[in-house]
């Protein structure tokens, strides 16, 4: 029961309180790039959730079975990025085979998941926070993906409505998106300290 509570708290913590996008600035590129339409944002969120779960779990296992016991910490970044690149390749092949329309609409952004900081960032945070059980690491990985999806979908929803608004010419595009994102982080700050 106690473990369940810890895991639930950890999940809520990473989805809302320590949301990687809004409090740690991770995954900003797709957050600003793919948040134009809500269906694409959701698709991107799902792809990231899948990759981050896979990558977070795998890197935790590699870290704890090879790197830490044999003091190979110097190889950590190399191993992590290789695992992530592999996982992205896997997702890319899967989506291309089974969801060709989705693959078309993602375009360049699918391979760019490799360079999504949220994924490598989570793997590094798992190590930094000294997460010591596999199940905890898995829950945090899923939570990070869900948190990313949440943030990018909220953003896409706002931007769909922003199209109807009369934005000054110089603020159109990236500037207004950034200011909106700023206000969103302010809203999410209200959750800080909840856990």
């Amino acid at each position: 029961m106690d473990t369940l509570q810890t895991l639930l708290l950890a999940f809520i913590g990473i989805v809302i309180v320590n949301n990687l996008v809004l409090t740690k600035f991770l995954g900003i590129c797709p957050y600003l790039g793919v948040s134009g339409r809500i269906d694409m944002a959701f698709g991107m969120g799902c792809a990231v959730t899948f990759v981050v779960t896979l990558a977070g779990t795998l890197t935790w296992i590699i870290d704890h079975t090879f790197l830490i016991p044999y003091s190979l910490e110097v190889m950590r970044y190399l191993c992590f990025i290789m695992v992530i690149a592999g996982a992205v390749q896997l997702v890319e092949m899967y989506v291309r085979k089974f969801f060709p329309p989705l693959y078309e609409s993602f375009g360049i952004f699918l391979p760019l998941i490799t360079t999504n900081c949220a994924i490598l960032g989570l793997c590094l945070f798992l190590n930094l926070w000294e997460i010591d059980s596999l199940i905890h690491a898995v829950v945090l990985s899923i939570g990070a993906g869900v948190g990313f999806t949440l943030a990018i979908c909220i953003m896409a929803g706002i931007r769909e409505n922003l199209e109807l608004a009369d934005v000054p010419e110089v603020m159109q595009g990236a500037p207004i998106t950034l200011v909106t994102a700023g206000l969103l982080t302010l809203a999410f700050m209200g959750f800080a300290g909840m856990i």
Binding site: A174, L178, V179, G182, T185
Partner: peptide, 13 residues
């Protein structure tokens, strides 16, 4: 705070 980063960069752009 994070909000300062976003808004300042937005205005810079």
């Amino acid at each position: 705070m994070p909000v300062g980063a976003f808004v300042t960069l937005g205005l810079m752009l």
